Amino acid sequence: MNLNNDSILKTGDWVKGISMGGELVIGYVESFKIHDEIVKVNVITSDNKTTVGKTIHMLNKNVMKMPDSKVTNKEQIRFLIDVALSTGDEDWFNELSSQLNSMKQLVNSVK
């Protein structure tokens, strides 16, 4: 089963797939080795709760890149800020904080 559909994965991409133990996993790519076809995924959620928060090795063919989300409101951005903080992704946190501040400024300028 090739879930990846030959898409090119990058570090930081959000992915879902089936772990080597058969569990459904959602997380983000920490690193990968193209020649080994192994992807290191930081697990955010999984059928197997013991893997949540850990980095696991997955086969490239069992991983599919998730589509980029379209954030449309402040609550979604706040949730993603929490995810960025929990994953230690400072660049993403800064980007999301900037988006939230832009929304606040837009609302304040309309008042």
Rank of each mutant, 00 (worst) to 15 (best):
S7T: 13
S7W: 08
S7L: 13
I8W: 08
T11I: 00
T11S: 06
G12Q: 05
D13V: 01
W14H: 12
V15E: 05
V15K: 01
E23A: 14
I26G: 04
I26W: 08
G27M: 02
G27E: 05
F32T: 07
I34K: 14
D36P: 00
D36Y: 15
E37L: 02
E37D: 13
I38E: 03
V39F: 10
V39T: 00
V39H: 01
V41Q: 01
V41T: 04
V43M: 04
V43Q: 04
T45N: 07
N48T: 09
N48W: 15
V52L: 06
I56T: 06
I56Q: 00
H57L: 02
M58W: 10
L59W: 06
N62I: 05
M64W: 06
K65R: 13
K65F: 04
D68V: 12
K70T: 09
K70D: 14
V71I: 09
E75D: 11
R78S: 11
F79Y: 15
I81A: 07
D82W: 09
D82E: 14
D82Y: 10
A84N: 10
L85S: 12
S86Q: 14
G88Q: 00
G88M: 04
E90G: 06
W92C: 04
W92N: 07
N101R: 13
S102E: 11
M103N: 09
L106I: 09
N108Y: 11
V110S: 14
V110L: 12
K111G: 05
